[in-house]
């Protein structure tokens, strides 16, 4: 228990101390939220842009921590031999993995607090019964984390870094984060098969009207949450 607590503390601290990670996990989401809430240039289709932007930016926050931050850090730990070295300590791989999961969830809570406070300040009024949104965010966390570890466990650290940032940018554009999926014409069908769009599709009704998300977004989220970690478990190379 002491080892797990220390490992979680170390993981969270390293995440919060990496400037480039903070930019992706808090800086960019906060900037998008504030900028597009105040500058009405997006076809959000809602009365106040923030009502559309807040759920999307929260989805981006989940993606940035569970996929970009976790993936890049794990890739470099693998290339520096950290994962290999930890393999011959009593910490063990299961507890290392558990520590990473817990630290991702803790950072996500911090992000929700910060970005949620900004959104409330901009006039966002989420529906109070948002339990389904939490469930959708959890499923998406496993989907993104699995994807991140599948890449980090097989690719060179530098390629993994570039790819994780590239996927972040693409999913930012076609994930229903700033542009509504309905405006993406041909891209929408493809985008809806990816976990980012499935998450925003789930968060909009859950946080906006407090109604259950559509079945298809649950199907996509569950499928990614099962398949991506399984692929990571099967392909991950520790050194």
């Amino acid at each position: 228990m002491r080892a797990l607590r220390a490992q979680v503390g170390a993981e969270v601290r390293m995440t919060l101390e990496r400037g480039e990670t903070l930019l992706v996990t808090v800086g960019i989401p906060a900037f998008l939220l504030i900028f597009f809430s105040l500058v009405h240039v997006l076809p959000t289709g809602t009365r106040h842009p923030v009502d559309f932007l807040a759920p999307g930016v929260l989805a981006l926050a989940v993606m940035s921590t569970a996929m970009v931050s976790l993936g890049i850090a794990t890739g470099f730990e693998r290339s520096y031999g950290v994962l290999k070295r930890l393999g011959t300590t009593p910490l063990g791989r299961p507890r290392l993995l558990l520590a990473k999961v817990i630290s991702v969830l803790l950072v996500e809570i911090l992000q929700v607090v910060v970005l949620g406070a900004i959104a409330l300040g901009l006039g966002w009024r989420p529906h109070p019964a948002a339990g389904l949104a939490v469930l959708a965010a959890l499923l998406a966390t496993f989907a993104f984390a699995g994807t991140a570890l599948a890449m980090a466990g097989t690719l060179r650290a530098e390629i993994n870094l570039a790819l994780a940032n590239g996927v972040y940018l693409v999913l930012l554009l076609i994930g229903g984060v700033v542009f509504p999926l309905g405006k993406l014409s041909g891209f929408a069908a493809f985008a809806r098969l990816l976990p980012a769009a499935a998450l925003t599709d789930a968060l909009h009704p859950a946080l906006g009207q407090g109604i259950a998300p559509p079945l298809e977004s649950w199907v996509v989220l569950v499928a990614w949450a099962v398949v991506a970690p399984a692929v990571a478990a099967l392909t991950f190379r520790w050194e």
Binding site: R2, Q7, M14, F76, V82, R85, T88, T89, P90
Partner: peptide
């Protein structure tokens, strides 16, 4: 057992004091 690999095995950003305290918590 105590293991010293030929290269690396330490978080690049972590200081000796912190990484030693972290490893100490495993035992």
């Amino acid at each position: 057992i105590g293991v010293m690999l030929q290269r690396g095995g330490v978080y690049a950003v972590m200081s000796p004091r912190r990484v030693l305290a972290l490893f100490a918590s495993y035992y």
